[in-house]
Amino acid sequence: MVPVRRKLDHREAVLAVDGDHGGEAGACRYVGDVSVVAEQRTTDIKAGPGGVMTDEVGVVTGDLTLRSELDDAGAVTLRVQYKDAAEWYAVTGGKAKLAAPADLDAVHGIAVALLNRPEG
């Protein structure tokens, strides 16, 4: 396991991509922020008319899997994927700070109730 810390300490620096000059073109020099998912809940849903809006690809429709992720800072993020696909997409507006980690179940249940529309 690799220990992950929220902030850099004395004499520490942000990780950077070494790059493969003969391989991948356009490798990013900054690897980005690392977030640790402390807990998560998943449920298969069927998007209703209009689908589910995501930040990355816009509207997704049909049979989806909804995942509610709680990070180590107490923030929940909602993500969806096409059922059995590899890619996850952030639900637009689907991020909030929870008062307590125990609230994850309630938030996930509400998200399922809002987004799951098997009857259309």
Rank of each mutant, 00 (worst) to 15 (best):
I110R: 11
G22F: 13
A106G: 00
G50P: 05
G26E: 07
G109Y: 15
Y89S: 05
A100E: 04
G32W: 11
D103P: 08
A111Y: 04
R41T: 11
V2R: 00
V37F: 06
L70F: 10
A100H: 14
A73Y: 12
V91F: 07
E69N: 04
G120T: 11
R117V: 05
G94H: 01
D9Q: 14
E12H: 15
P101W: 01
V60G: 01
P3Q: 01
A16R: 09
G94I: 03
L15D: 04
T92W: 00
Y30P: 06
G48C: 09
D84C: 04
G23N: 04
G58H: 09
A96T: 06
D103E: 13
A86Q: 09
K7G: 10
L15A: 07
V2A: 07
E56G: 06
A86N: 02
G26C: 08
K7M: 00
D105V: 15
G50N: 07
Y30G: 07
I45D: 05
T65E: 05
V17E: 12
T54I: 10
L66C: 10
K97H: 05
G58R: 03
G32V: 08
A96L: 15
G74F: 13
G51P: 02
R11T: 04
D18I: 05
D55G: 02
G94D: 02
Y89A: 00
G22E: 08
C28H: 15
R11Y: 12
W88L: 05
M1V: 08
L70C: 05
A96P: 09
R79Y: 03
D9E: 13
G23C: 10
A106T: 02
R117N: 11
D103K: 06
T43D: 09
R41L: 12
Q40A: 06
Q81I: 09
T61C: 01
V57I: 10
G109H: 11
D20P: 06
A86H: 05
A86I: 13
G22S: 14
R6H: 02
A113F: 12
V76E: 02
A102P: 06
V36I: 04
P49A: 12
L98P: 02
A113V: 12
V4S: 03
T42Y: 13
V36G: 03
D63N: 15
D71L: 04
I110C: 10
D44T: 10
Y89W: 11
T92D: 01
A16V: 04
P3H: 07
V52R: 05
E87G: 12
A90T: 07
G109F: 11
I110M: 09
